[in-house]
C-alpha cells in the first residue's frame, strides 16, 4: 500500500478539530519518528492555545511555528493564527501573510500543496472534520504527487463538509475512523 517511506505527516482540520486531534496526537509515543505539521482553522485575532493544550497532553513535542523552524522528528508543528504554514525545501518550515484561501489563514490547502512539492510521494496527509472545503485541493495535490491521503470517515466526523469535499476530489483516499487514523500513524511512525 505504501510505496515510499513517508518522511512527514500533514494534518488539516476545522470545526471539531480539538476533539479529533485529541484522539490522535496524545496517542503517539516519544519515539514516533516523523514530523507532523498541523493546520487548524482559528480566528486571526486570537492567541492560539492549541500548541500549549496539546503539549500538556502529548508525549511528542508540540510547538507553534515561528518562521524557519527546523523540522524534527517526533514533533507536532501548529500553524499560528493569521499565517499560512508551508514546508520549505531546506528542512525548515515557513510562514507567510499571503491572502486567505477559502477565507482561511492558515489554510490546509497551502500546507498540503507545499508538502506535495517538497516531499513528493513521501508524505501522508490526514484530512479531518471541518465545515468548509479547505484541504480538498491540497489532498488532491498530495495524491497526485504519489503521497498517501487519509480522510476521516464523514459519518464519524463532527462536521462533514471537509472530509466529503476531500473524498470528492480524492476518491481513492483511505477512509478511517479517528481510532483507525491513530493506529495507522503508529504503524508508519
Amino acid at each position: 500500500m505504501i510505496s515510499t517511506d513517508p518522511k512527514a505527516v500533514v494534518i488539516g482540520a476545522s470545526a471539531g478539530a480539538l476533539e479529533a486531534l485529541t484522539s490522535i496526537l496524545p496517542t503517539l509515543s516519544r519515539d514516533f519518528r516523523l514530523p507532523i505539521m498541523v493546520v487548524v482553522h482559528i480566528p486571526p485575532d486570537k492567541r492560539s492555545v492549541l500548541a500549549e493544550l496539546f503539549r500538556a497532553k502529548s508525549s511528542i513535542e508540540v510547538i507553534e511555528v515561528e518562521d524557519k523552524e527546523p523540522i524534527r522528528p517526533a514533533t507536532a508543528y501548529f500553524a499560528p493564527p493569521d499565517y499560512h504554514l508551508l514546508v520549505e525545501d531546506q528542512g525548515t518550515l515557513g510562514l507567510t501573510n499571503e491572502e486567505p484561501v477559502l477565507f482561511s489563514r492558515p489554510s490546509i490547502d497551502v500546507l498540503f500543496e507545499s508538502a506535495a512539492d517538497v516531499y513528493g510521494a513521501a508524505v501522508v496527509a490526514v484530512l479531518l472534520t471541518g465545515a468548509n472545503q479547505d484541504g480538498a485541493r491540497g489532498a488532491f495535490a498530495i495524491a497526485k504527487a504519489g503521497g498517501h491521503v487519509i480522510i476521516q470517515n464523514p459519518q464519524t466526523a463532527f462536521a462533514t463538509a471537509m472530509p466529503e469535499a476531500g473524498l470528492a476530489l480524492c476518491p481513492d483516499a483511505t477512509v478511517l475512523s479517528l481510532d483507525g487514523i491513530s493506529e495507522y500513524l503508529k504503524r508508519i511512525g
Binding site: 520549505e88 525545501d89 507567510t96 499571503e98
Partner: peptide, 9 residues
C-alpha cells in the same frame, strides 16, 4: 526568496 511561497504566487 522562500521557494514555497514564490512557487504559489
Amino acid at each position: 526568496y522562500a521557494t514555497g511561497s514564490i512557487k504559489r504566487r
